[in-house]
């Protein structure tokens, strides 16, 4: 049975009604929004900046382009893209969660990056943009929180211009048993405690660890992208597969 045919979906290790997942995920991000950047730096020892930087370097972005940063959160990718596309381009930061969007908007405003950026509250499964609109779409650490990932990929494919590139940066599966053991221990024993200590919320970080395990592995996500009518789909593992960058082109 495909994801689309089921009435329930995963929320971490729990099965919840599809209609409830959005609310559960929203609660998680409302809770962590204020400390999101600090926690990202702490959890990954700053390595998330390198993963995002590599994504930007491989995006092929240049001046004048229209770029959509879905689940853009606190705007790390948007900020860098806005400098690349320059005054003639446009970056749209979309996030379903208004708390994250507010944190992102305030952060970018403080950094003086507002002239070529739009902020849109949007669900990735039904993006409110015209067909064939964006040159590049990125979704970084957001796809695993989406209820219907196939619908989201199809929606992204629709708003991408022919020849445009979709980039999915997401936690994935390590193929090194030793790294997996260390990573599991860290995720389930240290991460929730760190979340409790810094953000005052262990449950959200427990969900983070579980949602990573429930997310499709590299090959499955690649086949989902192919099913969404993207071509030249490929992925690149980073940090031993802890994170993978999937890319696909709209024909």
């Amino acid at each position: 049975m495909s994801q689309a045919d089921k009435d329930t979906t995963d929320f971490g290790y729990k099965e919840v009604p599809k209609s409830d997942k959005v609310k559960h995920v929203a609660d998680v991000f409302h809770s962590v929004a204020a400390k999101y950047d600090v926690m990202n730096d702490l959890m990954s020892a700053g390595v998330h900046r390198i993963w995002k930087k590599l994504t930007i370097e491989q995006s092929g972005a240049r001046a004048g382009m229209k770029i959509l940063d879905i689940a853009g959160g606190t705007g790390d990718l948007t900020l860098r893209f806005s400098r690349i596309v320059g005054p003639g381009g446009r970056v749209t930061l979309a996030d379903i969660n208004d708390s994250m969007l507010k944190v992102g908007r305030d952060k970018l405003t403080d950094k003086g990056a507002i002239a070529n950026i739009n902020f849109v509250q949007a669900n990735a499964e039904c993006l409110p943009f015209p067909d064939n609109h964006f040159d590049i779409i990125t979704i970084a650490f957001g796809l695993r929180n989406v209820t219907d990932k196939d619908a989201a990929l199809r929606s992204m494919q629709r708003v991408l211009k022919p020849g445009g590139k979709l980039m999915v940066l997401e936690f994935s599966k390590t193929d090194n048993p030793m790294l997996s053991t260390v990573y599991d221990f860290y995720s389930f024993n240290i991460l929730p405690k760190l979340g409790q200590l810094i953000a005052g919320d262990a449950d959200s970080y427990q969900y983070l660890a579980e949602s990573i395990r429930m997310h499709p592995d590299q090959e499955t996500l690649k086949s989902m992208m192919i099913d969404a009518d993207l071509v030249n789909c490929k992925y690149q593992n980073m940090t031993g597969g802890v994170v993978a960058l999937h890319t696909g082109i709209k024909p």
Binding site: E57, Q58, R62, A63, R80, I84
Partner: peptide
Amino acid sequence: DAGIQLQQQFEA
């Protein structure tokens, strides 16, 4: 307007 951004790759 607040500094510089460095990149290793640039398509254009």
